[in-house]
Design a protein around this nucleic acid. Structure first.
Lengths: 224, 224
DNA sequence: TCGACTTCCTGTCAATCTGACAAGAAGCTA
DNA sequence: TAGCTTCTTGTCAGATTGACAGGAAGTCGA
């Protein structure tokens, strides 16, 4: 039996959630879009280590602030070489200045998650299901964990953090109420120096991720 | 490479959370306590099907209301026969009238989760970590999903449902406030006929699981 | 220099929700 | 019938939420 590792790597580009896809260079499904991933290099390679290796080789990302197991997928009949089982990992990358390029087998692009979920983009294997479950995991974890900070760079403004929630949940939030909630959740974010960054309007204070991983009170996703 | 399936089966016994453990009949770790599980029967067996087979054969449970993938565990050097990867599943069983017995390789017992987590009971392989992650998953899902009903029989009283939350979260809740919250979460529970069951005090109304899988408003685990 | 515009942030207020508790309802047992 | 148990409906003050006003602090263009 063969064990593969596949990565659902989420990030923000502009106002919307994106996932990293590659064009497969080999059969099966050559030329189709797929998640970055591959077989374990050798029998003794650790699964988590393999995930990190794929992150570097195929996605060109050296270090992401969040990497967690997502599930496993049988994919019977995936490959003529035999039974293949995929271990899927969810990774969250901060906003990147440049599109990911110059990677392993083929090119890698950030693609809107909506295009994948609505089937406007067809993905190889059962990778669309992996994306769906990765996004759902992110949506749930945003409520009661500090996952949102993984989408941001080391320091960030509160409105940048708000964009994360708006993109992942696909809702519009009131900035003023968002301020209050985020600041009240103890240990979620802490001020990062008196510096400020400039953009267009009034400069904003900078924060960084706090020590607390579970949020209390949680960020409630309202009924709407 | 070999693929195994392991099951973290949780249930309520008395007032506390229990997990099903077996005594291993074969090496390695013969005689030690472990989670029920085993290797895939053949190369084409579906992973989920294997989990359900183990549920029947090793745990003597025909049907559980909840079964979901938990994670995968590399366990390098687990077995002399080669590299083994375990796919762990979380299962939730309703209260059972009798202790599980007469199962596969050896005997199966319900053991208090606390004894496992506090290391009073030693488990083979990295099964203690699987239990810990299964319990943590259950704790989180209780907040915003209808998982709690999976711990109950088909019909149940509100106070039985409360016992689930108290056991899994290890907190004490006010029954009157619990009534209010549970009834307000739309689609969580629905009345199951005008029947009542008798116990000790005033008879209670019976409910069954409602159609809604995600709770709004969620059952907030307070700070305490 | 002076608006006009942008975004950031503090504050207010009514509606709702929460936690703590009182008290009645409906069974059992003695 | 009294006393016990558990279930269920209410009440009430304090906390939280959602909607919104308005000032603060920058940039840009004339």
């Amino acid at each position: 039996m063969l064990l593969a590792v596949d990565l659902v790597i989420l990030t923000l580009r502009g106002p919307s959630l994106h996932v990293l896809l590659i064009e497969r260079g080999v059969e099966p499904h050559q030329g189709a879009l797929a998640l970055p991933g591959g077989f374990l290099r050798d029998l003794d390679e650790d699964i988590l280590a393999a995930a990190q290796r794929e992150l570097t080789e195929e996605a060109g990302l050296s270090e992401v602030p969040h990497l967690e197991p997502l599930g496993f997928y049988g994919e019977p009949g995936r490959d003529p070489r035999g039974r293949v089982v995929s271990a899927a990992y969810l990774a969250v990358a901060p906003r990147l200045p440049e599109p990911v390029a110059g990677t392993d087998a083929a090119e890698a692009w950030w693609r809107p998650v909506d295009d994948v979920l609505s089937a406007r983009l067809h993905l190889a294997f059962d990778h669309r299901r992996m994306v769906a479950e990765g996004v759902e995991r992110a949506r749930v974890k945003l409520e009661h964990s500090a996952l949102a900070t993984a989408f941001c760079r080391e320091t960030f403004t509160i409105s940048e953090l708000q964009q994360v929630y708006e993109a992942v949940w696909d809702v519009r939030l009131d900035p003023r109420n968002f301020y209050r909630k985020v600041q009240k959740a103890e240990g979620f974010i802490v001020p990062a120096g008196p510096m400020r960054r400039t953009e267009n309007g009034r400069p904003a204070r900078l924060f960084k991720a706090g020590p607390m991983q579970t949020l209390y009170p949680p960020m409630a996703r309202s009924a709407q």
